[in-house]
Design a protein around this nucleic acid. Structure first.
Lengths: 157, 157
DNA sequence: TCCTACATGTTATATCATAACGGTCAGCGG
DNA sequence: CCGCTGACCGTTATGATATAACATGTAGGA
């Protein structure tokens, strides 16, 4: 199960371990992983690619977990705030975090063809943005680092 | 007129020189800097901060240059395709390019309070994303590199 | 002149996101 | 036990961002 890349891996395991990790974090920080939130995270983990809020909402709706937009957006807000998921700004879509537990600045390689996303685990305190911020006195709150393109499989296809 | 930062500078000059550069590029590449496109670029240069498509549309509308969304979006598409402007994904907003002529991978420091944007001039072929892409065989078409936070002035305020 | 390519004008609609309000339920102090 | 409080959820409505589709205009070359 590599940390970065478009490889096959033990997907069942990565779903289970991420959910377990999320539960542990919630217990520790007094956060509540309610049914809607938990199911939303499961959906993101199942798909293993970027999903729009309305894609998720449709699945939740089919399962009787709410069918109005705020249901999905609230769950996604919770997951992103807790660090369990990230928003892909370049696609207006959401994805489960692949490095739960690591204190990281997420960076993504996003295939525009199949929407598969690889999350690179980078550090907060180095890199161009951090250097530029330091030299100008800018205080970074959040970073968006994304590369859009074609994954190896879609290049061949 | 620094290339990066939240400094004061000779703004009149940077508007004029960027417009002149854009005209030169259009002449060379057989692109047409029509009135709507030119005015849209001027508006972005005047403001010197990220503007939403509908903000621009309102100004264009006041001046009789069109009042339906496609007018603004088409002009912005042209400007971004030509490299005269960039989209700030984290804000769904647009800004004039600060490094016209340089072959660059834009990176931005964006103040969420005053919406001022500093554009850092980085290179395409280095950095974390490029390394990650190389190691996985991913073909990058476009990058989004943005830091959202507070500029020095807004931190003090 | 006509044709073609590109640009523009316009209507309608798709897509993404949030405001606002009321209902439900668990935990807790009186 | 009771009622308060705070977090969550359900719902309606609306706001914000973006594009599809088609008609019209216009510059420049065959």
């Amino acid at each position: 199960m590599p940390t970065l890349g478009f490889h096959s891996h033990d997907h069942t395991h990565c779903i289970a371990s991420t959910l377990a990790h999320a539960e542990a974090v919630c217990a520790e920080k007094n956060l509540r992983l309610t049914p809607v939130r938990r199911r939303t995270l499961e959906i993101l983990l199942d798909e293993h690619r970027a999903l729009g809020a309305y894609d998720i909402l449709a699945i939740l709706g089919d399962e009787g977990l709410g069918n109005a937009p705020p249901v999905a957006y609230r769950a996604l807000d919770f997951l992103t705030s807790a660090g369990f998921a990230h928003k892909i700004e370049g696609l207006n879509a959401y994805i489960a975090c692949a490095h739960l537990g690591a204190d990281h600045t997420p960076a993504f390689l996003i295939c525009t063809s199949c929407k598969t996303v690889a999350e690179a685990n980078t550090r907060t305190d180095t890199g161009r943005l951090a250097e530029a911020a330091k030299s100008t006195g800018f205080a970074i709150e959040r970073t968006v680092i994304e590369a859009l393109g074609l994954c190896p499989a879609c290049q061949n296809a």
